[in-house]
Simulated assay, not measured.
Amino acid sequence: MAGPSRRTLARALETLADFADPTAALEQYLTPPEIAAHICHQARLQDDLEGWVVDLGTGTGMLAIAASLAGARQVIGLDIDPDALAVARQNAARIDEAGKHGCLEWLRGDATRPPLSLTDATVVSNPPFGAQRGNRHADREFLETTRSIANVSYTIHNEGSQEFVESFAADEGGEVTHAFRAEFPIARRFEFHTEAEETLEAEVFRIEWE
């Protein structure tokens, strides 16, 4: 059955609320609706939404809700921050379609040590880019978790990450099957931001894991 178009998904996701009080150490930035729509629309076209979908580090719930709207019926949004999960729940409640099948579950936990026993999920994730002190290898830790629970994943990374992602996947028996660039606008939220809005160049990768 045909699902919503990418544009329809993006428009719906534009209504979701951002973090009320984001934490810099966790690199809490709103995943752009256009990127979330692109990922989940592509996942539906690839039949990657048939089983469990896990959004690691769900934050405001953007990717989890996008997956639900795109047709996934079993979605878990995992985050270590209870305040972020509260925003995610509120965002899901404001979109009727996201809750009509009761498919969304919100779980508090560390994305690098998730309290999950899944082994064949589809993972969607916008991990920390590693910009903050102490987070240098955060995206690698997210990929390590992804490898342990997923057979397919879609993750967002900073520009210039393709060699690292492809190498990591190959070492773990996986393969990058799709990659695309995306603009990642970031509004001024923290004291160290000097511009009202900055646009980062990001890269999104689909990986099939053995």
Rank of each mutant, 00 (worst) to 15 (best):
S117H: 12
H157F: 07
V53I: 12
N135H: 07
D171Q: 15
T15Y: 05
S161T: 10
V87H: 00
V165A: 10
D21C: 07
G102Y: 03
A20Q: 12
D18G: 04
R140C: 08
R189H: 14
A88H: 04
R206C: 09
T23Q: 13
Q46T: 05
D81K: 05
A67D: 00
F19Y: 14
E144R: 15
S5I: 07
D21P: 04
T122Q: 03
E163G: 05
L118E: 02
A25Y: 11
M62K: 00
E203K: 05
M62H: 01
T15F: 08
D21L: 06
D171T: 12
L13V: 13
L116V: 04
R113N: 15
D48N: 11
A150L: 09
S148M: 09
S153Y: 00
E210T: 10
F19K: 02
Q162A: 15
G57N: 03
I149K: 04
E203V: 04
R136D: 11
T15D: 06
T58G: 03
T194L: 14
T58A: 02
P114L: 10
A121Y: 01
T177C: 10
R147I: 06
L69G: 00
T119S: 14
G160C: 07
G57I: 01
R108A: 14
I80M: 08
L104R: 03
I39D: 04
F180Q: 08
T146G: 13
A202C: 04
R94M: 14
R7F: 07
N135F: 02
R140A: 13
G59Y: 00
L63I: 04
T155V: 10
E141Y: 14
H101E: 07
L200A: 11
A182M: 12
E97L: 02
T58V: 03
A66K: 00
E183R: 13
I76K: 07
L85A: 03
N135T: 11
P114M: 07
E197M: 13
E197F: 03
G61L: 00
V87E: 00
A84T: 08
D47I: 06
Q74M: 06
D47Q: 15
A187I: 09
S167P: 07
T146K: 07
P128G: 02
R73G: 15
H38D: 10
E14S: 10
T145P: 11
R136K: 11
E27L: 10
F180C: 10
E159K: 15
R136M: 05
K100C: 02
E97R: 08
T199Q: 03
R113H: 15
A36L: 04
V87Y: 00
S68F: 00
E166G: 06
L143N: 12
R7L: 11
S125C: 15
R206S: 06
D139N: 13
R108K: 13
A70W: 00
M62N: 00
I207V: 15
L69M: 01
L63A: 01
F142D: 07
A64V: 01
E191L: 08
V54P: 11
E172H: 15
E210L: 13
Q74E: 14
T58Y: 01
L26Q: 06
V75R: 06
T58S: 09
G102N: 04
G130K: 05
R108Y: 04
F168W: 13
S167E: 14
P4S: 06
R189I: 05
L9T: 12
R181K: 11
G99L: 02
T199Y: 02
S167V: 06
A37T: 08
T23D: 09
A187F: 05
Q132E: 08
G51T: 09
T145K: 11
